[in-house]
């Protein structure tokens, strides 16, 4: 780890990679394409902290979230959760740890079982991990959680399709909280919602985090949302972390050209403000065949010939602020002129 930090980390990821191997079927073997969805990602999340993870579609954000929760087996690297090494554990070995870490999904329509009542959806974790719990106690816990996420306890008897997207997302949050987890991965929890509902759900998450002292990895492609939720932010591009910094430091003083481009793409709700937009050329390259050296160099306005030679390591440039770029001579601070 290159970033000096205080506080004990709840979760530490070191050199985590997730590669997907393509084209291996029963009858076709041999040459394989490899999708490097996540390639050597390291970070840690301190107790009570919210780490934001931003990046465009296909940058591997969700894969990072699912891999550290061990929904995927990492191809390489180590994931330590509160002293337990998660990489290499079997499903059975993971089971006792499951209640302590949970996931909130992006799509509130696919994440709730349409054939189960809301009450059943929320209390299923209890029936699995504490089957001796009485029906009355379970019902009480469900009511408590529905109240916590701002829904009426009488909704427990209803089915998911009777609810709006925002309400469904609340139900998903209630399910994630039922076993009192320490660690929550929120995988684009508000991207599928209307803007007005987004604020409500974000506020709810913050309130709950405060109340329950949760540690969170908050994944989003929306810098504004991540900025208002996170203590620190990691910026991902093509399976790698290109910049990792405290929120304030990242917003005021971005050091990586990609972060600058992301800020430049954020809409400003004031038409009087004009600024020079940095438009990235082309598409995000294919993770099957990533560029040599720095993966961002093909679209970087500041790229030098040297960028193709080595993969720039994530190095600390200010206290707690790390970037993966060989150019130290850039001033990328946002300039706004009226």
């Amino acid at each position: 780890m290159t970033v000096v930090q205080t506080g004990t980390p709840l979760l530490t990821a070191e050199g985590v990679s997730k590669w997907f191997f393509l084209g291996n079927t029963l009858f076709r073997r041999g040459r394989q394409d490899v999708v490097r969805a996540v390639d050597g990602v390291s970070f840690d999340i301190r107790r009570g902290e919210v780490l934001g993870l931003v990046g465009e579609s296909g940058s591997g954000k969700s894969t990072v979230g699912r891999t550290i929760l061990r929904l995927n087996e990492p191809t390489a690297g180590s994931i330590r959760f509160d002293g337990h090494e998660l990489a290499g554990l079997t499903r059975r070995q993971l089971r006792p740890l499951r209640p302590r870490m949970q996931l909130i999904f992006q799509d509130p329509f696919s994440s709730l079982n349409p054939r189960m009542t809301v009450g059943r959806i929320i209390d299923t974790p209890i029936t699995i991990h504490a089957p001796e719990t009485s029906r009355a106690a379970r019902r009480e816990r469900v009511a408590e959680l529905l109240h916590l996420v701002g829904l009426s306890p009488r909704y427990a008897e209803r089915y998911p399709h009777e609810f709006s997207g925002g309400q469904r997302q609340r139900i998903g949050i209630a399910r994630a909280l039922v076993m009192n987890p320490d660690f929550l991965v929120a995988d684009e929890p508000v991207s599928a919602l209307d803007v007005s509902i987004q604020a409500q759900v974000v506020n709810l998450l913050l309130e709950i985090r405060e109340k329950l002292g949760l540690t969170m990895l908050f994944i989003s492609h929306d810098l504004a949302v991540v900025g208002c939720v996170s203590d620190r932010i990691a910026v991902m591009y093509l399976g790698r972390i290109v910049e990792l910094a405290p929120t304030r430091s990242l917003f005021l003083d971005p050091r990586h050209p990609y972060t600058e481009a992301l800020f430049s793409a954020e809409p400003i709700p004031n038409p009087a403000i004009r600024r020079d937009r940095i438009l990235l050329k082309g598409e995000i390259p294919s993770p099957v065949n990533p560029p040599s050296g720095c993966v961002f160099r093909t679209r970087c306005p500041y790229a030098l010939p040297d960028c193709a030679k080595v993969v720039p390591p994530l190095t600390e440039v200010a206290p707690g602020h790390a970037k993966a770029c060989i150019r130290d001579d850039l001033d990328l601070r946002p300039s706004q002129h009226a």
């Binding site: 699912r66 929760l69 929904l71 499903r91 993971l94 089971r95 006792p96 499951r98 209640p99 949970q102 996931l103 999904f105 992006q106 799509d107 696919s110 994440s111 709730l112 079982n113 299923t124 974790p125 699995i128 991990h129 998903g172 399910r175 076993m179």
Partner: peptide, 14 residues
């Protein structure tokens, strides 16, 4: 492949 199956996996369901 639906998310609710992933959710069940996430809670450690057999």
């Amino acid at each position: 492949e639906r998310d609710f199956a992933v959710a069940a996996e996430m809670i450690g369901a057999p």
